[in-house]
Deep mutational scan, measured.
Amino acid sequence: VTLFVALYDYEARTEDDLSFHKGEKFQILNSSEGDWWEARSLTTGETGYIPSNYVAPV
Rank of each mutant, 00 (worst) to 15 (best):
V1Q: 13
V1E: 13
V1G: 14
T2E: 11
T2Q: 13
T2K: 11
T2S: 13
T2G: 11
T2W: 13
L3K: 05
L3S: 06
L3P: 05
F4S: 03
F4M: 08
F4A: 08
F4Y: 15
F4T: 04
F4N: 01
V5C: 06
V5N: 02
V5F: 10
A6E: 00
A6Q: 00
A6I: 01
L7R: 04
L7A: 03
Y8K: 08
D9P: 07
D9G: 06
D9I: 03
D9Y: 04
D9K: 05
Y10W: 09
Y10I: 01
Y10N: 03
Y10A: 02
Y10C: 04
Y10P: 00
Y10T: 01
Y10H: 06
E11C: 12
E11P: 05
E11F: 10
E11I: 14
A12E: 03
A12K: 09
A12H: 06
R13M: 14
R13V: 13
R13Y: 09
R13H: 11
T14I: 06
T14K: 14
T14C: 14
T14H: 15
T14V: 07
T14Q: 10
E15I: 11
E15C: 12
E15D: 13
E15T: 13
E15L: 12
E15W: 10
E15S: 13
E15P: 14
E15H: 11
D16H: 15
D17L: 10
D17P: 02
D17W: 11
D17K: 14
D17F: 15
D17T: 15
D17S: 15
L18N: 01
L18S: 01
S19F: 04
S19N: 06
S19L: 02
S19W: 03
S19C: 05
S19G: 07
F20N: 00
F20L: 05
F20S: 01
F20R: 00
F20Y: 01
F20W: 01
H21K: 15
H21D: 06
H21M: 12
H21A: 10
H21L: 11
H21S: 14
K22F: 06
K22Q: 08
K22P: 04
K22C: 07
K22H: 06
K22N: 04
G23E: 04
G23C: 06
G23F: 05
G23W: 06
E24A: 06
E24D: 15
E24P: 00
E24H: 07
E24Y: 05
K25Q: 12
K25H: 12
F26Y: 01
F26M: 06
F26V: 03
F26K: 00
F26S: 00
F26A: 00
F26E: 00
Q27L: 14
Q27G: 03
Q27A: 10
I28R: 04
I28C: 04
I28Y: 03
I28V: 10
I28E: 00
L29Y: 06
L29M: 09
L29V: 08
L29C: 07
L29Q: 05
L29D: 05
N30K: 08
N30T: 08
N30S: 12
S31Y: 12
S31H: 11
S32T: 13
S32K: 11
S32A: 11
E33H: 15
E33M: 14
E33C: 12
E33T: 12
E33Y: 13
G34D: 12
G34E: 13
G34T: 14
G34L: 12
G34K: 15
G34I: 13
D35E: 13
D35I: 11
D35Y: 15
W36N: 05
W36G: 03
W37V: 06
W37P: 01
W37A: 02
W37G: 01
E38G: 05
E38N: 09
E38Y: 15
E38I: 15
E38S: 10
E38W: 15
A39E: 00
A39W: 01
A39D: 00
A39C: 06
A39R: 00
A39Y: 02
A39M: 05
A39V: 11
R40T: 12
R40H: 07
R40M: 12
R40K: 12
R40I: 12
R40S: 05
S41N: 11
S41T: 04
S41D: 03
S41K: 14
L42T: 07
L42I: 10
L42C: 10
L42H: 05
L42A: 05
L42D: 04
L42E: 07
T43D: 10
T43F: 11
T43I: 10
T44P: 00
T44F: 03
G45S: 06
G45L: 08
G45D: 06
G45I: 02
G45T: 04
G45E: 05
E46H: 13
E46L: 15
E46K: 15
E46W: 09
E46T: 08
E46I: 11
E46A: 14
E46P: 01
E46C: 11
T47C: 08
T47R: 09
T47F: 07
T47Y: 08
T47I: 14
T47E: 09
T47N: 05
T47G: 04
T47Q: 11
G48N: 01
G48W: 02
G48C: 01
G48L: 02
G48H: 02
Y49P: 02
Y49I: 09
Y49L: 13
Y49W: 14
Y49M: 14
I50M: 02
I50Q: 00
I50P: 00
I50G: 00
I50C: 01
P51R: 08
P51F: 06
P51M: 07
P51L: 08
S52D: 02
S52Q: 07
S52G: 07
S52N: 06
S52T: 07
Y54D: 01
Y54H: 08
Y54K: 06
Y54N: 03
Y54P: 01
Y54R: 06
Y54L: 10
Y54Q: 05
V55L: 11
V55W: 01
V55Q: 01
V55M: 09
V55G: 01
V55C: 05
A56P: 01
A56R: 11
A56T: 11
A56G: 08
A56C: 08
A56N: 06
P57K: 09
P57T: 06
P57I: 08
P57D: 04
V58P: 04
V58G: 05
V58R: 04
V58M: 12
V58N: 06
